[in-house]
Design a protein around this nucleic acid. Structure first.
Length: 222
DNA sequence: GCGACAG
DNA sequence: ATCTTGTCGC
């Protein structure tokens, strides 16, 4: 497919297969496990992020030690992006580069952090769920802006009558929105994201390092 | 009906 | 996400 050049309106429901893909995500949402599935204490945490230059995505995945934030492994993948950004269909752009990067890692990790929503999604199955189900790993969705849902006074986020997200705000005015990707409870996800945000930062350290690496990777001249 | 809408 | 310098503020 070569649709990246095509012009679409800001959030285009006319995109080919828009409704089909949404239905697939709705079906997949039933496979999301919202219980903690850890086999050992969490030692290693993986973070992934993608930066862009034109229609090329530069994806970086890193594994950090949870206690010291030491970087244990870091991989970079360059990948042509063939789809536009469409709200709700974020997976069209980042699913492939992220999976490619994750599959290049050789170290083990106990937890995966994805830059985007998990269950806090119109289909209850955002990018973090898609990746988490494919990898079959405890996965948390960490987004920097809200896509849907209502923030309540206790910082929980309600969607369609369920509590599917939590606001975590270590720096005043710079919150992240946490939701379950797979194999973890919302309560544990919130606690871990809190713990993984270093002082002076507002996003978890593994995602920050992945973000810095991918930007550096995207700006390297050839 | 209209607007909003992860990165 | 990205295009982009200096500048205001803690």
């Amino acid at each position: 497919m070569n649709r990246a050049h095509t012009v679409f309106a800001s959030n285009n429901k006319n995109f080919p297969y828009y409704h089909k893909i949404k239905r697939l995500q709705e079906e997949l949402s039933n496979k999301v496990v919202t219980k903690d599935c850890f086999t050992r204490p969490i030692r290693h945490v993986c973070g992934v992020d993608v930066s862009y230059r034109n229609d090329v995505g530069y994806c970086s995945a890193v594994i950090l030690r949870k206690d010291t934030n030491e970087v244990l492994e870091s991989v970079n993948v360059k990948c042509k992006i063939n789809y536009p950004y469409i709200s709700g269909l974020f997976l069209l752009r980042e699913y492939e580069p992220i999976l490619t990067a994750l599959n290049m890692l050789s170290e083990e990790y106990d937890l995966l952090l994805i830059d985007g929503h998990g269950q806090l999604h119109p289909t209850k199955c955002g990018l973090a769920c898609n990746i988490g189900i494919t990898m079959s790993k405890p996965t948390i969705g960490v987004a920097k802006s809200l896509l849907c849902g209502t923030i309540k006074n206790d910082r929980s986020i309600e969607l369609a009558g369920q509590i599917l997200g939590r606001v975590v705000e270590k720096i005043l005015g710079k919150p992240v929105y946490v939701s379950v990707g797979n194999k973890i409870s919302l309560m544990t996800a919130e606690k871990l994201v809190q713990e993984l945000i270093a002082n002076g930062q507002h996003i978890p350290q593994p995602l920050l390092i992945a973000h810095i690496n991918s930007r550096k990777f995207a700006n390297e001249k050839f």
